[in-house]
Design a protein around this nucleic acid. Structure first.
Lengths: 252, 252
DNA sequence: ACAAAAGTGTTCTCGGTACACCCATGC
DNA sequence: GCATGGGTGTACCGAGAACACTTTTGT
C-alpha cells in the first residue's frame, strides 16, 4: 500500500558538491507534456530534486529520503534554509498536471520547505529516477530552472556563503583527506574572491580541529602536499570551551 | 464569506519585547475543555500566538497578520527561523478538538512555520483575542507552554542570540531614541553575561550607523545620558561597502 | 634542468581586553 | 553634600593584511 501524501507541503533539496575547482549542484532533467485544445504542449527544463511529504513524515526525514533516493548517500550534511510559499509559485497548468501525474494526487497550492545538502561528489552514485536524468551542473553555468527553483538556488547560495564563514562545513564537500590548497580552492570558489595563500595557511593551521596526517599527495608533478583531516570531536570540544565575547559582535 | 483555510500548515510567532531590564515574550492564556467518557477534561496553559494559514496566503503574510491582530503593530521586524513538523507535535485529543473548534475545520497533523518578531513594548497595544488573554511574560520565568511551544521558544532564543551578534537588530527592541546603557542592558539580558561598559561604548560609538542626538535624558536623579538613534540608511550603505575578508572566517 | 605547485616569515596596523576614577544631576 | 548612574583613557596583546622567494617532486 502506498502511504498517503500531503498534497500541500513539499521539500526541495539543493545538493551541492565540489569537484576541486567549481561548486556543483545536482539537477533533474524533466519534460512535461500536456494536451490542451488539441495541441500538445511540451516543455523541457531542469529542476531541483524534491518530493511531496508523506502524512506522518517529519520534514527532515522527507528531505533525507529525497537525498538517499537520488545519491545513495545517507548521513550527509543537510540543512533547512527556507520556506517558499507564494501561492502562484507553481503557476502553469502543465506543471500542475505533471505533479499530479507524478504523485497520483490532486494538488493546487504547494508550500515547499527547502534544504541544502553538502556531499562528497566522488562518493555519490547517481540513481536513475522516474522523473528524468540526474546530473551535476556547475552552479555558475545555470541560467534558468523550472518553477521557482532558480530563486531557491540563489537563496541557498546566500545561506551557504554565510554558513561557510561561520561554521566548518567546508569539510563536508571535500574528501576525508585533503590538502590546504584544496580547502582554499573551495573557499575561493564559494566566496568568489582570491585569498592570500600564506595568510590562509597561517589561519587554518592554527585551528585545533585540523589534524595533519603522515601521508602526502602521490604521483603529482610537483612538490606533494601534506594531507589533513577534520576532527569533528575536537571541534565540538572547542566550541563548548569558547566563551562569547564582545569580539563576537560584528555587523559587517 | 470566510476565506478557506489550509488545515495542515500554520504559523507561530515568538514576539519579543524588552522592558529595559528583561527580555519579554507575548503569550496567550487559553483553556481547553473536552467531554470524554462523561467526564469534563479541562486544561489551562499558555501558547504562542499563531494561526493556520489561508489558502492563497503567503506564509510571511500570515505571520504578519497574526502579529497585527495581536499587537496592532504593523511593519515590525519579523523573521522566519524554523519549521516544526513532528507528526505528533499536537498529540492530545483535547488540543486537536480545540483547534478544530477555533478554526471550524477538521485537522489532523499540522506543520508549523515559526517566526520571531521584535517589537517596541511601549508601542504595542495588546488586542483582546477570542483565544484568551494576551500578556507579556519574562522569558526567564517561563516554565512550560502548550503543544511544543516551549521547544519553539528555545529555538527562537538561540537564533535571536546569533542574530544579535551579527546584525543590528537590537534597535528593533529599543525605543527610537536610547542611551548606550540601555543598549548594553539589552545585550547583557539576551547574551546572559556582563560586558565591560568602557569597551562597549568604545565599540558601538565607532559604528557609523549610530547617530548621536542633541537631546539628553531628563528628570533622572543622576547625570543625564546622551541619546542616540539607529540610522538604517547608513547601515545599509556600510554593508554594501564592506568587502568580505579572511577576517570573516570565524568558527567559534 | 625545468615546470608546477607546495610551503614559509616579517612588519605593520587595528581591534579587543583589562582596569579605576571623575562628572552631572535630583533630592 | 550625597547618592546615583553616566562617561572617560591607557597599556598590552593577538590576529589580520600585505608581500616574494625557496623547496620538492615528475618528466
Amino acid at each position: 500500500m502506498i502511504p498517503p501524501v500531503n498534497p500541500s507541503i513539499s521539500v526541495d533539496c539543493v545538493i551541492f558538491g565540489f569537484d576541486g575547482k567549481d561548486l556543483m549542484v545536482l539537477l533533474i532533467d524533466f519534460t512535461r507534456s500536456q494536451t490542451a485544445e488539441g495541441k500538445i504542449v511540451e516543455k523541457s527544463s531542469r529542476k531541483l530534486p524534491g518530493s511531496l511529504i508523506l502524512e506522518n513524515e517529519e520534514i527532515d526525514v522527507a528531505a533525507n529520503r529525497t537525498l538517499v533516493e537520488l545519491t545513495g548517500l545517507n548521513q550527509v550534511y543537510l540543512r533547512q534554509f527556507g520556506v517558499f510559499s507564494d501561492p502562484r509559485r507553481i503557476n502553469s497548468e502543465e506543471d500542475l498536471q505533471w505533479i499530479e501525474k507524478a504523485y497520483g494526487v490532486k494538488v493546487s497550492r504547494i508550500v515547499t520547505i527547502t534544504y541544502y545538502a553538502l556531499v562528497k561528489i566522488d562518493k555519490s552514485i547517481l540513481q536513475p529516477t522516474s522523473e528524468g536524468e540526474v546530473q551535476w551542473h556547475r552552479v555558475q553555468d545555470i541560467r534558468s530552472l523550472a518553477f521557482d527553483h532558480k530563486h531557491i538556488l540563489v537563496k541557498a547560495l546566500e545561506v551557504l556563503t554565510q554558513q561557510l564563514l561561520n561554521e566548518p562545513i567546508a569539510f563536508e564537500l571535500l574528501q576525508k583527506r585533503f590538502s590546504i590548497r584544496q580547502l582554499q580552492n573551495l573557499y575561493e570558489a564559494i566566496l568568489g574572491f582570491e585569498i592570500d595563500n600564506r595568510n590562509f595557511r597561517k589561519k587554518v593551521l592554527k585551528l585545533p580541529f585540523l589534524k595533519q596526517l603522515e601521508e602526502k599527495e602521490k604521483e603529482v608533478a610537483h612538490k606533494p602536499a601534506r594531507l589533513y583531516k577534520f576532527d569533528k570531536a575536537a571541534y565540538e570540544k572547542e566550541v563548548k570551551r569558547s566563551r562569547l565575547q564582545l569580539n563576537f559582535i560584528r555587523f559587517f
